[in-house]
Design a protein around this nucleic acid. Structure first.
Lengths: 138, 138
DNA sequence: TATTTTACCTATTGACACAGTAGGTAAATA
DNA sequence: TATTTACCTACTGTGTCAATAGGTAAAATA
């Protein structure tokens, strides 16, 4: 299950992309448009800044802004930054030093296959794919 | 994330399929082979019986048994019985009466697409796909 | 019939994550 | 200097996960 953190993070980034006018956008505006508590969003953008996906600027005229172009963000990296590995089972997320049954486990290959499916899905979707096109004639 | 309940359930069913000898198999044996606490497995098989995937028999010589042939169980139905809907986000799992933003939500289509991917994946895998083939020459 | 073996039942627990809320400090601009 | 904004630490209630504990009921066997 993808939690609110991952989902809200993507919505914040969409909002910043769609309302980009060259300068910083206050979180207050994003919160109002997205109908999400500003206090809660603070936690989320903090992680996005720490992960290098957004930059923040304090003071009057401050706010947040994307660091890259929307087509340079994958949904996978946003989600994994917010939620940790996309792995569908603990056996895969724990790294290699997992359970002793791993070698003989009959179910592990299914989880691995599904893991790959998931990974490929989210790393082949870009933030730009989710934007309402403003310039129709392009 | 698929929890131990779903994963153990599949392992129990594989174990029952592979050690099928026409009669009931005590949970004690399954627990020992799978190295899972019998007490915990009781909870899991209870759900499997309630869901009509297994039948149990009390008393000496009792135990559990599959109700159908392994090729007639999908992994999807086992997982969803144990864990509830496979939906990747709450927005999809909550049914139709979800959030008021659903119609205009720019992220919902991605979740829906991933949901379909997941659903198709697990409902096209069968329990029989996970069995070690005993009859090689078939 | 007594004993053993098994399923089946209810309740409880500790740890942790989720989804926030509360109240403050630091920085930048007007 | 006042305002606006980001940024920081701490706390909380609710729920789920992964079990454990201690029983009762049923079926076969001796």
């Amino acid at each position: 299950m993808i939690s609110t953190k991952g989902r809200y993070a993507i919505r914040v980034m969409i909002d910043l992309a769609e309302h980009d006018h060259g300068s910083y956008i206050p979180l207050k505006d994003v919160a109002a448009r997205q109908m999400i508590s500003k206090k809660y969003l603070e936690i989320i953008v903090k992680d996005l800044v720490a992960g290098g996906l957004l930059t923040g600027m304090s003071g009057k005229g401050g706010g947040y802004r994307l660091c890259r172009k929307p087509e340079e963000y994958t949904l996978g990296e946003i989600i994994e930054l917010m939620e940790g590995p996309l792995a569908p089972v603990a056996c895969l997320a724990e790294g290699a030093r997992a359970c002793p049954r791993a070698a003989s486990c009959e179910t592990l290959p299914v989880w691995a296959e599904y893991d790959k499916l998931t990974h490929d899905f989210f790393y082949s979707r870009y933030l730009s794919d989710l934007l309402k096109r403003k310039e129709e004639g392009e």
